[in-house]
Design a protein around this nucleic acid. Structure first.
Lengths: 156, 156
DNA sequence: AATGAAATGAGAGCGCG
DNA sequence: CGCGCTCTCATTTCATT
């Protein structure tokens, strides 16, 4: 399905997707059209999900990152789906992880002020009868944020 | 610095950065060269950090997401810097949040097997004298993963 | 089936008014 | 800021292995 050359292409693209295909070809020993075809296939198959610009949130005032550990009142499936749907439409919720163990969800949220978070948490958590309690963890800084997939072990 | 039109451009680009500038212009009522000039400025100023492909990790076998809560032995600054540097080179650590409160770090890791995580956690946490203890939270599924910055409240 | 070379076409990057 | 040009690059065609 995907061979080593594809992995090498992905490794490059998840760092920079505006690089000319000719340069990719030079880097991995392939012609530009060959690279083009491989990329096209991977887009069609969904291996490459999308192509986006990464924006510096600090420069736009969205400087506060908050991790929220959410404890549900019961783990009935309907509640989980309901809550997922509620979370899915909230732009400030960047990431939503469904976990098992003590808690049920981990969220990563981005807000521009604590006031904004207080209002959001009231609406999302306090006023939500399905949620038993929640734990707010304010991040003091982020050292690493990338959705890059580790591929180095696949490059042969 | 950045006006409403810039926000609209960013809103589009963080969803799709391969869309022609002409289409962006049509969407926001601007000519393609005007869009291009704005994008160029935002790239130079760093508001647009980078442009990347988003890869579907599930299709590549990196199916396990693990959240790790790390408790340091002491909060001396040197230790924090040391640990940051250790984490920064580990490809499987996708995200590293420095927090205050009970714990000191939250990590989001991506691995292809629990065996891989066990080996990594031994090397990174157990054999690390600066780390007092760590809590492993295995994610059963991700509903939302995007690094998109909430801009909707700035679009007027 | 996948490749590379050459040809085509779309779009980015300029100067101009 | 918009218009029009140029030139790079993406994409297609085609022959080859």
């Amino acid at each position: 399905m995907v061979d080593i050359l594809d992995y090498k292409i992905l490794e490059i693209l998840q760092e920079n997707n505006l690089i000319p295909q000719r340069d990719i070809g030079d880097a991995i020993g392939l012609s530009a059209p060959a690279v083009q075809r491989r990329i096209k296939k991977m887009r069609e198959s969904g291996i490459i999900e999308k192509d986006v610009s990464i924006i510096n949130r600090d420069m736009l005032g969205n400087t506060i990152t908050i991790i929220v550990e959410v404890f549900l009142d019961s783990e009935k499936l309907e509640h989980i789906l309901t809550i997922k749907n509620e979370f899915s439409v909230v732009a400030e919720i960047q990431q939503c992880y469904y976990v098992t163990g003590e808690s049920d969800f981990f969220l990563v949220m981005v807000v521009s002020s604590m006031k904004e978070y207080e209002e959001l948490s009231k609406k999302l958590f306090i006023d939500n009868s399905n949620i038993k309690r929640f734990r707010t963890i304010v991040s003091m800084g982020i050292d690493k944020t990338s959705l890059k997939i580790p591929l180095s072990n696949k490059l042969g």
